[in-house]
Simulated scan of single mutants.
Amino acid sequence: MDSQMELAFEKSKTGDKEERFQAYQTILAATDQKVDWAYEVWDQLLEDLSHKDNHQRSRAAQYLANLAISDTEMRMMEDFPMLWEVTKDEKFVTARHTLQSIWKVGIAGEPQKEMVMEFMVERFKRTDEKNYTLIRNDILQNMRNLYDYDDDETIKETALDLIGMVEDEKYVRKYRGIWKN
């Protein structure tokens, strides 16, 4: 990892609000492609998933989701449950930011995609969570993102099947809107 990226990781934790945001943007942009330094930060990011600061938990989760494409050792297959736990964070904004980025794990490969889909399908079926309709919306958007990435028709079929289970017509219309076109 070059010194500029090391500085970005440092500033994403310790800088002022603007510096943290700029560092966050820099790291997300860098990790949109495969990088050769994923394991230099991997263990620290896993540790930060349970950091006392919810912003740190959120950033760590989003960075890890992005780094899944650089995970040549397939560590994510074992570490994913820790990442998934942050989608249930006590701070809903942290949980939601994590959930909205979780689809990126699925583009790392077929086993990762199957795992992410399995977790999302099970979560979609739950109606005992606060804000479950928003969670469902995010899950369906994740599925749409995965589908748009690799045109896997089984993802679309799964999403439409899940929408078919929804009883409230208002949400059926909203969720179907994600799958238009």
Rank of each mutant, 00 (worst) to 15 (best):
A60G: 08
K130I: 14
E153Y: 01
M143F: 08
M74T: 09
Y149I: 06
Q33Y: 04
Q22M: 11
D148H: 07
T158P: 07
A68C: 06
D161R: 13
N142S: 15
E157R: 08
T72S: 04
T72N: 04
K125I: 12
T127P: 01
D48T: 06
E110Q: 12
N137S: 11
R136D: 12
F124L: 09
T26D: 09
D43Q: 06
A95I: 13
V166E: 14
W179T: 13
E153H: 07
R126A: 10
E114A: 12
N181H: 10
R96K: 15
Q62Y: 01
L99F: 05
A159W: 04
A38M: 03
L7W: 00
F124Q: 10
D150H: 12
Q4L: 11
L45Q: 08
L49H: 03
T87D: 10
A30S: 13
A65E: 14
Y171Q: 11
R20D: 11
D128W: 00
E10W: 06
T158G: 05
V41T: 05
K17F: 04
E18P: 02
N66K: 02
I27K: 03
V93L: 07
A8Q: 07
Y171D: 13
S58F: 00
K13N: 08
Y175N: 09
L45G: 05
R173F: 01
V93Y: 00
S58Y: 00
T14W: 01
Y63R: 03
K174Q: 13
L67G: 04
